[in-house]
Amino acid sequence: MKNKIILGISLVFLIILGIYGNHWVTQTSTNQAKIQNSRMTPIIFIPGSSATINRFDQLFSLLNETPPAHSVLKVQVDRNGKLTYIGNINANDQQPFIVVGFENNDDGYNNIKKQTKWLTTALTSLQERYHFKTFSAVGHSNGGLIWTNYLEKYYDRQTFNLPTLMTLGTPFNFSEPSLQQRTEMLKDFIQASDKLPPDLTMFSIAGTDDYTNDGLVPIQSVIAGRYIYQKRIKAYTQITVSGDNAQHSNLPDNPEIVKLIQTNIINPLNAQNK
């Protein structure tokens, strides 16, 4: 009798679980279908330390001089991981610009780890709202470090597809001018580089103000990125821009870099959508 009661209760439990489970499967597959069929391929920007979500405004104005215009959405992540959305994405815009910024935008390796977690939260939320799978990424300064940490620790190829990453003046070895002196962060990045997606194309842009640094980041620190990415991903390209607009903080607005973003990020994604 006791056994029959247990089996009866289990059957009722299975039916309830089945009903709720069916709801979960329907909801999840609908969501997955939207993501799968989505033609939106945003470009997601992360500013460097101390910079705000408005860091790329000038760059966006320059890029939008060439049609089609791209809508701009800014996402601010506070210290508790709460998201604030500013701006919106036009219904027919397949290639919006999205900036993810952090309330805690301090420098340092520990902070980069925290910011990477917040980035993951923001990406999940963005995918739930806009149902995209493919996106390209741009990171200025420490923004490139956050992307690198994200790719090594959190990126899931089942969930997202990131074909191109561009970093601008990213200090892979912080302010260390010598490649012989590797910081803890660089060592960690090199050690986990086998986790990088093998189909990624990466552009690392360095600026030189006086042939040794861009006024803030030593060029050797930017070049250290090759120890992380080279031979681990599909293609790794190191580009150096020089001249008056090559200072660290001016890099996003440098005309050469605007062209590089247009040619290597916007146009390939456009072609993919067509």
């Binding site: 299975l14 089945g18 489970g21 499967v25």
Partner: peptide
């Protein structure tokens, strides 16, 4: 279709 992690397998055919 994918079913939730940990779901009793006896429900998998029906749900998936």
């Amino acid at each position: 279709f994918m079913t939730p992690v940990g779901m009793p397998t006896i429900l998998t055919p029906t749900l998936a």
